[in-house]
Simulated scan of single mutants.
Amino acid sequence: MNTALITGASSGIGLALARELAAHGHALVLVARDREKLDLAAKQLELQYGVQVSVYTKDLSEPGAAEQLWADVSGRHAVDVLINNAGVGLYGDFHEQPVDELTRMQTLNVVALTTLTRLVLPGLVARGRGRILNVASIVGYQPGGPGMAVYYATKAYVLSFTKGLAKELSGTGVSVTALCPGVTVSAFEERAGASQTYLYRFVPQTKPDSVAKAGYRALMKGRLTVIPGFTAKLFAFSGELPPRAIALFVNRWLLRRGKVMPAA
C-alpha cells in the first residue's frame, strides 16, 4: 500500500485530497497545526475507507519545521506520494503588512515546500517511483497581484519550481505535478483578509472535492500541470496574454475591496 504525506490536511483542499487518496487505498500521513481537527479527520478517514492514518502536528511556517517533520516521519513511514498543500495568503498594501507575517508566509509557501520536496526525493529516486503534487494556484500564471503581491509571487515560484524539477527528474520514474486551482470554497480568503475583494465576492468558486479529484487524476497520470475548471483555465490563460500590463490592471481591480452590502 502506497503512503501519502499531505501537508495542510485538516481542512479545504488538503482534506479533500486526503479523502481522494484514501478512497484509492493510500495510507495517509496528515500534517497540520490543529491537532483536534487532524484527529477528527483521521478517525473519519479510517472508518470510511479502512486505511491507516497517522497524524503529525506541525506549524510549517516556523523555521526548521520541515526538517523536524521529516525527521519524525521518515523513520516510521516510507513515503511514496508527497502532497505539498499547506499555504497561506496575506492581503493588503505591502508596505503596511507585518514583516513577521510576510516571513511566515514565505517560509510556509516556498521554503517548507522546497525543503520537504528535497528531503523526500532521494528515497523516491532510489526506488525509481513516486509522485509529488505541489499545490500552486492560477495566480502563478499572473504577472502580479497588487494587494497580494507576495502571495502571488510565492505561487509563481511554486509553478516555476515544479516545471523545472519535473524536467530534471525525467526518466527517473518520479513525477512532479503542479495543481493550480482557482477561487475555491474554503476559509482561505477570510484568513488572508481578502474576503471582501471583488475577486472573492463575484468570481465563481470551485468545491474542494472537485479540485482534489482533478489533482489526483493528474498526479497519477504524471501530468506536469492541472487547472481545474473552465473559469480557472480562463484566468490562467488571460494572465499570460500580452501585453501583461492589462492583467496587472485587472488584478488590481479584482483585489480591491467592494462595499459590504447590508444583510437582508
Score class of each variant (00 low, 15 high):
1 M>C: 10
3 T>N: 08
5 L>H: 04
9 A>F: 00
11 S>H: 11
21 L>G: 07
22 A>F: 08
24 H>Y: 08
25 G>M: 04
27 A>D: 13
39 D>C: 12
40 L>H: 15
41 A>T: 00
42 A>M: 07
50 G>D: 13
54 S>P: 12
58 K>Q: 15
60 L>K: 01
66 A>Q: 01
70 W>V: 09
72 D>C: 00
76 R>G: 07
77 H>F: 15
80 D>W: 13
87 G>C: 01
90 L>C: 08
91 Y>T: 08
92 G>E: 05
93 D>M: 14
93 D>A: 14
100 D>Y: 13
102 L>Q: 11
104 R>V: 12
105 M>S: 01
105 M>K: 02
109 N>S: 10
114 T>I: 08
114 T>Q: 06
121 L>R: 04
122 P>E: 05
123 G>S: 15
124 L>S: 02
128 G>I: 12
136 A>V: 04
142 Q>M: 07
144 G>S: 03
144 G>T: 03
150 V>I: 12
151 Y>L: 05
156 A>F: 11
163 K>V: 06
165 L>R: 04
170 S>N: 09
170 S>Q: 14
171 G>E: 08
176 V>Q: 04
176 V>T: 04
178 A>V: 02
191 R>Y: 12
192 A>P: 00
193 G>I: 03
197 T>W: 05
200 Y>L: 00
208 P>Q: 07
211 V>S: 06
214 A>Y: 06
219 L>Y: 06
219 L>P: 15
219 L>E: 06
220 M>P: 13
223 R>E: 15
230 F>D: 14
236 A>L: 01
252 R>D: 12
255 L>M: 15
256 R>H: 10
264 A>N: 08
